[in-house]
Design a protein around this nucleic acid. Structure first.
Lengths: 210, 210
DNA sequence: ACAAAATACGAATATATATTCGCGTTCGCA
DNA sequence: TGCGAACGCGAATATATATTCGTATTTTGT
C-alpha cells in the first residue's frame, strides 16, 4: 500500500524548462492511457513512466508519489465536469426544467464516454485523497441549483428547496455512476437520463405547498 | 496483487472435524471485524488469521486465497439482502405502491447499518469476482418486481414495465450506495428512501398510457 | 492404547512494486 | 565556449504481503 511519504500532493520540483514540462504532460497522458486500457490494477509507477517514454526516476522528480498522479487526473475530471454542468445551468435561454434535464443528459453521457477512466479512478480512490480545493468547488454551484429548482417548481419553502437540491445531486452522481458501470448504448443512456429527469420533475410537481 | 493461484474459490480442504469448522467460522467473523474496524487496506491474510486467533497456515488450509474469503462474505451479504427484499415484496397484505416504498426504506436502512462492511467490500471488489451462482440469484426476483409495478401502475405496456423495473433496481442500488457513503442519521436516510419512492411512484403515475 | 488421518502452526519463500540516489547529460546564460 | 543548474536515467533498495511447506499436535476409529 505504501503510505510512507503519502500526504504530500505538491510536486517536489517544479518544471522550469520546456522539456520537463513536456515530461510532466507525457506522464499525465500516459497515466490516462494506462488507466483506460490496462485498468487500475496495472497502474504502477514504472508502467506509467514506460508508457510516457521516460524513466521512473524522472517521474518522481515531479510527482512525490503515485497518488499525486491520480489526484491530478481526478482534479482535471472534476473541473471539466463542473464546467460542463455550470455551462448548462447558466444558459438562461432555456427554461429551468429543461436545464435540469439537459444537465442529467450531458452528465450521464459524459460519464459513459469516459467510463473506463472514471471507473479506474473510482477503484484507485482509496489510494489517494482528493485535493481540498476541488472538494470546495463542488459546493460552489449549489446556490445556482437551488435557484433553478425554485424556478422550475415555484412555491417550495427553503427546507424543501435545500432537500430537493441534495436529492438532485445524489440522483445525478449515483445514477450516473450506475449507468456508466453497466455498458450501454448511447440511446439507453439517454433513456435513463430522461427517466431520471422525469422522476425528479414529477417529484417536484407533487411536493406539497402551503 | 498476487493473482497466482487465483480463480479458485472452492476450499482446498473441507472441514471434517468440529474444531476446523469452528476455525473457518472464526476466520469469517474475524474477516468481517477487520473490514469493519480496520478497513479494506488492512485486510491481509495474516491480520485476519491473527484476529481469528489462528495461524495463516490454518487459514490457507480452508481458503485457497485471500479473495475467496471476500467472496464468501459478499455471498452472505447478497443472500441476506435478497431475503430482506423478497420478504417485503411478497407481503401481499400491503398494497403494491407501499411495498415498493417499504423495500427502499428497508434497503437503504440496511445499507447504512452495514455501511462499513459493505463499503470495504466495494473497495476490495477489484480483488475478487463474485460467484456466478449469486449473480444469477439477483435476477430471480425480477418477475415479482414487474408484477408489483404492474399492480402499482396499471395500464403500462410490457416495454414500459421492463424499463421501470430496471429503473427501480438502478435507483435502489445507486441511491442506496450513495446514501450509505455519506454518513447520515437514520431520519435522513428515511427521507432519502421516501423521496426516492416518491420520485419513482410519481414517475409511474405520469407515464403515458394508450 | 495406538496408528492413521486431520488439523494447526509460523518461519521461510516468492513476488510485486513504490521510492531513492548517484551519476551522466542537456540546457540557459554570460 | 564554459559553467552551474536543471534534467533524465534505471539499477538498487526498502517494504509489504500472499502463499507454501515441513513439522508438531490433536482427534478419530479400533
Amino acid at each position: 500500500m505504501a503510505r510512507r511519504s503519502a500526504g504530500t500532493t505538491t510536486p517536489r520540483k517544479v518544471p522550469k524548462q520546456a522539456r520537463s514540462a513536456r515530461l510532466v504532460d507525457a506522464i499525465l497522458q500516459a497515466a490516462v492511457r494506462v488507466l483506460e486500457k490496462d485498468g487500475a490494477a496495472a497502474f504502477t509507477t514504472i508502467r506509467v513512466a514506460a508508457r510516457a517514454g521516460v524513466s521512473v526516476g524522472s517521474l518522481y522528480q515531479y510527482f512525490p508519489n503515485k497518488g499525486s498522479i491520480l489526484v491530478r487526473l481526478q482534479e482535471d475530471e472534476w473541473i471539466s465536469t463542473s464546467q460542463l454542468v455550470d455551462g448548462i445551468f447558466s444558459d438562461t435561454s432555456v427554461r429551468a426544467p429543461e436545464r435540469l434535464r439537459k444537465v442529467l443528459r450531458a452528465f450521464f453521457q459524459s460519464e459513459c464516454d469516459e467510463a473506463p477512466l472514471r471507473h479506474a479512478l473510482d477503484i484507485m480512490a482509496p489510494h489517494f485523497e482528493p485535493a481540498p480545493e476541488v472538494v470546495k468547488r463542488r459546493d460552489r454551484g449549489r446556490p445556482l441549483l437551488v435557484a433553478l429548482i425554485d424556478e422550475a417548481a415555484p412555491g417550495l419553502d427553503r427546507r424543501q428547496l435545500a432537500f430537493a437540491a441534495e436529492l438532485y445531486v445524489s440522483l445525478m452522481k449515483s445514477m450516473g455512476k450506475q449507468v456508466s458501470e453497466t455498458v450501454r448504448s448511447p440511446a439507453v443512456v439517454q433513456s435513463f437520463a430522461d427517466a431520471s429527469a422525469d422522476m425528479f420533475l414529477a417529484y417536484l410537481r407533487d411536493l406539497p405547498r402551503r
